[in-house]
Amino acid sequence: MKFARDTWLIFQRQIQLLLRNPVWVFVGVFQPVMYLLLFAPLLKPALNAPTQAAAYKIFVPGLLVLLAIFGGLFQGFGLIAELRAGVIERSRVTPISRLALLLGRSLRDVVSLIVQAVIITLLALLFDLRVFIGDLLLAYLMLALIALMTSAVSYGVALKVKSEDALAPLMNTVAQPVLLLSGILLPLTFAPGWLQGIADWNPFSWAVDGTRALFAGDLGSDKVWQGLTITAVLAALGVFWAARQFARSVR
């Protein structure tokens, strides 16, 4: 009970600050929108898709997963600013739940990701993308789990390195291969065998496959439950690890 209340308290505060400066939600959505408008039109001929809508069904899920991964991984910067301002230290001398300090922030990141995902989806509707609403909600659940995991990990790493200068290259180094190996921009069905072999070990590639299956309306596909299970387990592990950093860290 106390934990739920504490989480809600931190979440409320973070949302309040986000709403005071909502420009960041839109800055975050800018890059994927550019991909949607300027890159996606190349895909119909490139993928040999029968229609523009079919190409979008492949591309948009990948784009949303990309948004969830990157959006989450870079949340650590905000935490470093809070560390510097002494806000975290001030929280740590109160009896508030350590897990709530983390989860309240990560849940804000999930909400801001879902808002961005809705913006992208609405724009994609203009390009004739059609998705069944139930499938879409499940896809959003997958995205929420990914964002929860990446933002928690980013907070945990931020607590460890405590400096933007270390966090930026670290996150980029992690994010680039993860991105390329998850078939986000183009499906890995085009990949040579060895590349597919490596990608099979990338959990995000399973998440992308699952999200694509949902956008294709293929709810019964094994990829859906596999993707959801993998992301759920990863999210739990990420939160667990980061919560330990919160409980332990000095500053």
Binding site: L17, A85, G86, V87, E89, R90, V93, T94, P95
Partner: peptide, 18 residues
């Protein structure tokens, strides 16, 4: 102990935007 004490750190503890 946390419940019974208050602590004011040296480097500040307030958030600019609040």
């Amino acid at each position: 102990v946390r419940r019974r004490i208050g602590y004011v750190p040296q480097g500040g503890s307030t958030w600019d935007e609040s």
